[in-house]
């Protein structure tokens, strides 16, 4: 009996460790695979040229990724600026001010938002956001736009990020002990002062984590953005102009024009860039969380 229990123990241990190693190996293998496929392009061009050049002429063998990187960063930042404050204050309201009933109503709504396929968000973007940008928002700012723009991409992305960020922020604020809130209130804090000094401060690592998740999600989102962003090479600060983010480049072109030398490698390099940027974003936020958790 003891031998059987020990054997079961060992097997479960091996299973758990094995699972962990497989999970750890996945990103390593993805990174190696992408690098391997992108290597031909990296052998012919310097990394600086690939990242900082804006010349994209695959037929001539020129692969400047700057417009794609710029569009990706622009759309992601826009989505973050639009969604982060909204999620933060909604989560604070739901967990600290509203009645439990409202939170119970909102949780399934958030889950539904998270479960909607991105293509549906894309269609919604084409039907609602694109006309809104071309017909109302751009004219309001004295600009003209087809509507297929960085702003449309940012808005659609922001809506897509909301359920993920909001859900995580609600979880974060729920973990803060009631005793800590009571301590703050009993020292004479108003409800808002308690939120400011205790909830936000104590939840800060979690807030950063939620924002990091949102940014990583926004940076890698493909289909919905591709449908509304215009897919035109541009480096412009105007949100009403079209852009062309990295995921859209890959999704639009993979499997096409493969006869062009190095085109396949270029798309793999775009994927590698995405992978590395998301890795850096995550590492940065991890570091930030580690620093702020010590408070």
């Amino acid at each position: 009996m003891n031998r059987k229990r020990r054997l079961t123990d060992s097997l479960v241990n091996i299973w758990m460790r094995g699972g962990l190693y497989i999970i750890l190996a996945i990103p390593v293998f993805i990174g190696i695979g992408l690098y391997w496929k992108a290597a031909p392009l990296l052998n012919e061009h310097s990394l600086t040229d690939l990242i900082f050049s804006s010349k994209w002429f695959p037929m001539k063998g020129e692969f400047g990724f700057l417009p794609f990187i710029f569009s990706s960063v622009y759309v992601t930042l826009l989505a973050f600026i639009l969604s982060a404050p909204l999620c933060l204050f909604a989560a604070i309201y739901l967990t600290q001010f509203s009645k439990r009933r409202l939170l119970n109503f909102m949780l399934p709504v958030i889950d539904i938002l998270a479960g909607i396929p991105s293509v549906v968000y894309g269609v919604w973007g084409i039907l609602v956001i694109v006309p809104l940008v071309s017909g109302s928002i751009a004219p309001f700012f004295g600009a003209t736009s087809s509507g297929y723009s960085l702003l449309a991409g940012g808005i659609v992305l922001a809506v897509m990020c909301i359920p993920y960020m909001l859900n995580m922020l609600i979880e974060v604020f729920h973990t803060i002990p009631v005793g800590m809130k009571e301590a703050s209130l009993s020292l004479g804090a108003t409800h808002w002062e308690m939120v400011k000094h205790v909830i936000i401060r104590k939840g800060f690592p979690g807030i950063i984590s939620a924002f990091g998740l949102g940014i990583a999600k926004a940076f890698g989102e493909t289909i919905a953005v591709l449908m509304v962003v215009g897919n035109t090479l541009n480096i412009t600060l105007s949100p009403f102009k079209a852009g062309y983010p990295l995921p859209a480049l890959i999704a639009n072109n993979y499997g096409e024009m493969m006869s062009i030398p190095d085109y396949d490698s270029a798309l793999m390099f775009a994927a590698l860039l995405l992978f590395v940027v998301i890795l850096i974003i995550n590492l940065f936020f991890r570091y930030f969380i580690h620093k702020t958790e010590k408070i």
Binding site: A183, S186, V198, R201, F204
Partner: peptide, 10 residues
């Protein structure tokens, strides 16, 4: 107020 377990502020 002094609680069951201490809750120092962050």
């Amino acid at each position: 107020l002094l609680s069951q377990r201490p809750f120092p502020l962050p």
